[in-house]
Design a protein around this nucleic acid. Structure first.
Lengths: 336, 336
DNA sequence: CTGTTAGCGCATTCAT
DNA sequence: ATGAATGCGCTAACAG
């Protein structure tokens, strides 16, 4: 009881050999005899020896750990990305430390600082909304300049000289819109949120592009919500005032709320009124009616980003600064 | 470009003072003169000096980091616990490393090992389903014996000599059942899942207790589902064959699926058929009709556990081995 | 095949 | 008030 972990030094004393002999034996060095090896390993196992990770990291100048900064952990999309990151990292022998920026630039800077002071070998970051909005990215520039491998995911910062993994947001929105058009919809609104984010702007562009191409674009049909959680009343108003036959919502919660309001107005879904949402979480799947949604393949995005980062850590020279795009796909369900 | 982080040694060379002077100056030691301090700090800032975390940890034998092992990160409940852990830890100056056991004993053992080899100062763990089921907990016993601060959360292992933070599952289920009874329900079924977990068994006990007390208990009304994701067909069968007026589901997804099946049978909710679920996630709130649910205050549980762990790290002697219970509450919505 | 030694970056005790 | 020296636990270059 109360026994601390045993060290190589103590092991060496017990075995009456030198520290380096123990270290080499434990690492299966060819320069150690088989019986010495066996003896060392036996005693190590007996005393339940575990190499101290911190000491190893200091010596090797590598931590076998990657840092992740996400803006929001209560968002299912990010959780799934995280899941993909964790899985890929685990498969490749890396640990993951996650920090949450809560969409705040200040916390993000703090997160980046604490992570990159030797704690991790590379960084995966989805910049906070505030970072994107204020274009304040000195902390990341500095990091990249110091030759720390960095990869951004989901949201990119063009000014940054680092690889990124993103969704095909523009295309995805265009396809979703096109899908509604091909189903015969003419009066399709766009419900947007988090307008400061580049991904959201891209989705709006995608919607515009499809609508314009079909000569259906009506700028007054683009709505932006500041507070999604309390958007129901506004949605109801909009649905009353405009005679829409479909809505593309750029946010998952918004799609569900739109459906609820449409039902309240006795609009038949999907017959008279169709809805397509984004980021295909549990709610889209379980809601009744189930919600058609753009699936961004979050897990794949996470795995890809982690894989690229680990490649970059292992092979810094071969790293190319390019954006990898994870294609999303439309999951058709009962709402369209 | 490409410049590595500067070290104290390099700083000392630049300033033409000794290493220890720099170290002391940076740490505001009283044995350093004010102007020397100022000069050192100025140059440190200029070169953007950041103390190496790994070296500090090795020297101080402390990492200011806590490790967390959760069984499943795609479960909203655990994400919320994690959120609480992260928040409290952040407030108290600690970082968090999270590992996911995927409900597997083997992965859990691996997680615990890699976390506790010097990487963290203490461990928060929710044992995997397999760990609870097989009662295989040598890895945790060993850890506790080695005087590493450990606290379990949500799921407890009684055989373990460590504090824990849990829900009042039995009471919560009893109250929820009682709530249904007081609304006039007589034929109340229990839909359960993950029967190996102690929390689930407690909930069943709570249900039994309330039903028995009101002379309504019917053992054939207790159902267990192995595969919640594909339980809809079975649920439909059960609803057809038994004339129930309410169901308590021990799992969030199960509650939603039950409502969908009930609607398919044209049961009026909540008039003729009531449902109460567990763990009050986004789905319970957004579903239509919204689902009454037992809220386990996951965030609070996480914060409490993290707080206790940090207390225990800072004050190992004063740690008492006791279970803290986070009281849950019933959120009444449209399904009951 | 085994041992001695130096050093990763930092804090700290002890001298000056 | 400042500096030299030691050690945290480990690896590896070098010596024997």
């Amino acid at each position: 009881m109360g026994k601390k972990n045993i060290t190589i030094k103590e092991l060496a004393d017990i075995l009456n050999v030198s520290i380096s002999t123990v270290s080499k034996a434990l690492n299966d060095s060819h320069e150690i005899g088989d019986k010495t090896k066996a003896k060392v390993k036996e005693v190590a196992a007996l005393y339940n020896y575990r190499p101290n990770f911190i000491a190893k990291s200091l010596k090797n100048q590598t931590t076998k750990t990657i840092g992740v900064v996400v803006p929001d952990i209560l968002n299912y999309f990010f959780v799934k990305v995280l899941y993909g990151i964790e899985k890929e990292s685990r498969d490749r022998g890396y640990k993951v430390i996650t920090c949450i920026s809560h969409e705040s630039l200040e916390i993000e800077v703090e997160n980046v600082t604490t992570l990159t002071n030797g704690r991790v070998d590379g960084l995966l970051i989805c910049p906070s909304e505030e970072t994107q909005q204020t274009k304040n990215n000195g902390h990341l520039k500095e990091l990249i300049d110091s030759s720390m491998p960095v990869i951004t995911f989901d949201r990119t910062i063009n000014a940054l000289q680092c690889p990124s993994v993103i969704s095909d947001d523009l295309e995805a929105a265009r396809n979703a819109t096109q899908h509604l058009i091909s189903k015969g919809c003419k009066s399709i609104a766009l419900f947007s949120a988090h307008g400061d984010l580049s991904v959201m702007q891209d989705r709006v562009k995608g919607y515009r592009s499809a609508m314009q191409e079909n000569h259906l674009l009506d700028e007054t049909h683009i709505f932006s919500f500041n507070d999604v959680a309390h958007a129901e009343a506004s949605i109801l108003e909009i649905l009353k005032e405009h005679s829409l036959d479909a809505v593309l919502t750029i946010d998952e919660l918004l799609s569900v709320k739109t459906i609820k309001m449409a039902q309240q107005l006795n609009l038949a879904i999907p017959k008279d009124f169709k809805v397509i949402g984004f980021s295909n979480g549990q709610i889209s799947q379980e809601f009744h009616p189930s919600v058609s949604s753009v699936d961004q393949h979050a897990e794949e995005m996470g795995a890809l980003a982690a894989g690229l980062l680990i490649d970059s850590i292992k092979n810094p020279e071969e790293t190319t600064i390019e954006s990898k795009v994870v294609k999303s796909s439309l999951v058709e369900r009962d709402s369209s």
